[in-house]
Write a protein that binds this DNA or RNA. Structure first.
Lengths: 110, 110
DNA sequence: CGGATTGGTGGATGATTGTCAAACCGTCCC
DNA sequence: GGGACGGTTTGACAATCATCCACCAATCCG
C-alpha cells in the first residue's frame, strides 16, 4: 500500500497558515475535517460523509481545496481514493491548531 | 471611557468557528490579527498597521469583517475608533485556538 | 469484451469578495 | 461657522468561488 500514488500536495514546509484557514473557512470543508478527525482513511463518496445534498463533483472540488492547502492527503488505490488528515505535518507546523479546531467543533453549545 | 459606544458585534455565544476561520483566511486580516495580538487598542489608520499600500476604505472593510465575525471589538470615542482583540471571548469559546494561530504566525521558517 | 463502479474534468452560472474612488458624516478646534 | 481629521458608506469592477451538469477516465469484474 505504500507504493500507491498520492495526489499532488504541498510539502510540509510549504503549508501556509492563511491558505489553511481559507480552506477551513467553509462549512462543507469544515464538515469534512471533522469526518477526517478520526485519523482514518475515507472514500470520496458524499454519502459516506453526510453530504448527500451535494453533487459529487462539488465534493471533489472541496477535497481538492483541502488537499492543495495541505490539510489532507489522498492515496490512490485502483479506482478508489483514500483521503486522510495530515495530522503530523499540521501539528509540526502549527502546534495546537488542529487540536483547538477539532475541540471547538464538538462544543456546539448555543 | 467605559461609557463609549461599541460598534455592532456578535454576542460571545454567537461567534461561529467557520465564520472566524473565513475571516482569518485572508492575508490582510491575518496581518491585522497579529497587530492586535498585543492586546492593546489600535486606531484604524492603515499607516499604523503596515498597510500603507491599501486604501483606507479597504482597511475599513477588513476591520468590519473581523468585527462581525467576533474577532475584534471597536470602541468609538469621538472621531476615533479603537480596535482590539476579543481575546477573552475567543479563548472561552475556542480554547487554545488564538494561541495556536498567533504562535503559528511567528514561525515563518522555510 | 462490456458494463458497472469510483471519481475527476471542464464549462456555465450566480454569488461573494477585495479593491479603489468619491462622496459622506460626526467630531474636534480655530 | 467652517475647515480639518478619522473613518464609513456606496458604487463599480474584476477576480474568486461554490454549485450543478454533462461528459470523461481508469479500474474492476463477470
Amino acid at each position: 500500500m505504500s507504493d500507491d500514488e498520492r495526489l499532488p500536495q504541498p510539502a510540509p514546509a510549504e503549508i501556509d497558515l492563511v491558505t489553511v484557514l481559507h480552506a477551513l473557512g467553509d462549512p462543507v470543508r469544515m464538515r469534512l475535517l471533522t469526518s477526517y478527525a478520526d485519523g482514518a482513511e475515507h472514500s470520496c463518496d458524499p454519502r459516506h460523509l453526510g453530504l448527500e445534498h451535494l453533487h459529487k463533483s462539488t465534493v471533489s472540488h472541496h477535497m481538492r481545496v483541502l488537499r492543495e492547502a495541505g490539510v489532507t492527503t489522498t492515496r490512490v488505490a485502483g479506482r478508489n481514493r483514500y483521503v486522510s488528515l495530515r495530522r503530523a505535518d499540521l501539528d509540526a507546523r502549527f502546534p495546537g491548531l488542529l487540536d483547538a479546531l477539532l475541540a471547538a467543533t464538538v462544543a456546539p453549545e448555543h
